[in-house]
Amino acid sequence: MSKPFARRLRATSTPAESLLWRELRASKLDGLKFRRQTPIAGYIADFCCYELGLTIELDGKHHAEQPISDAERRTVIESHGFLELRFTNDEVKERLDWVLQEIRRAADIARCRAPRRPFPRLD
C-alpha cells in the first residue's frame, strides 16, 4: 500500500477512528506517539506506535466477512516485529475507556518484549 493511499485514508476517517485519534494524537495517551494510517509490510495500520512496535486496527462490520484475510494481515504485520491490537468500531464508540485501558496494557507488554529485529522502513 502506498503513501498516497494512506493519506487518502487519513482524510476520510470513520467516526470511530476520529474518536480514538482524539485520544491518541499529540502523545495524549501516556506520552505514546501514534501515527495514523501507517504503511507496514504492504498493509496500512489504522494507528501505529512505531517506538513500541504496536499497531491498532479498528474493524467495521465488513471485517466479520473476512476473518482469514485479517488473520493473514496480522501474521504479516507481527512477523515484522509489531504487536497488533484489534477493536471493533462499536467498542471504540461504546467502551472507549476500556479500549484505552487495553491499549495501555498492550503498551506495557510491548515495552517488556524481548528485543526484536529492526522494523522495516514504513514506506
Rank of each mutant, 00 (worst) to 15 (best):
S27A: 13
S18Y: 13
D70G: 02
N89C: 11
R73H: 08
E78F: 05
G81H: 01
R8N: 14
R36F: 05
L32H: 10
R73A: 05
D97V: 12
A45F: 00
P118A: 06
S27I: 05
L32F: 11
R73C: 02
A16W: 15
F82S: 07
S79W: 11
A11W: 12
D59V: 02
S79K: 12
Q66F: 13
R117C: 08
L54M: 03
P118Q: 04
D123M: 11
G53V: 02
R86Q: 04
T55V: 12
T55W: 07
T38W: 08
Q66K: 14
T14E: 11
R95Q: 14
A64Y: 15
I68D: 13
L96I: 11
L29C: 08
T88F: 04
R74K: 14
A41D: 02
K3R: 15
F119W: 10
E23V: 05
D46K: 07
W21H: 04
W21G: 06
L29V: 05
V76Q: 08
N89D: 15
R86D: 01
A41M: 02
S18Q: 15
R111H: 03
L58M: 06
E84G: 04
A106M: 01
D46A: 02
I56V: 08
H63N: 01
I109A: 09
I44Y: 05
L83K: 05
L32R: 06
R111I: 01
R10L: 08
L96W: 09
Q101P: 03
Q101S: 15
R111N: 02
S13E: 14
A16R: 13
R105W: 14
I56T: 02
P4S: 10
H62A: 11
S27D: 12
A110G: 00
G60C: 05
F47Y: 06
F87V: 03
E78T: 01
S2F: 09
Y43Q: 01
D108W: 14
L9N: 10
R104E: 06
L24G: 04
K33M: 08
T88W: 03
E102T: 10
A26I: 10
A16V: 13
E91C: 09
R86L: 01
Y43P: 00
A106G: 01
E17V: 10
R73S: 05
L54Q: 00
Y43I: 02
I103N: 02
A107N: 01
H63K: 00
T12N: 14
A11H: 13
I103M: 06
Q101F: 14
K61A: 15
Q66C: 08
P39K: 06
R74Q: 15
A16D: 11
C112V: 09
D108R: 15
F82V: 06
H62L: 10
I44V: 11
F34P: 00
L20A: 07
I44P: 00
R117A: 12
E51D: 09
I77W: 05
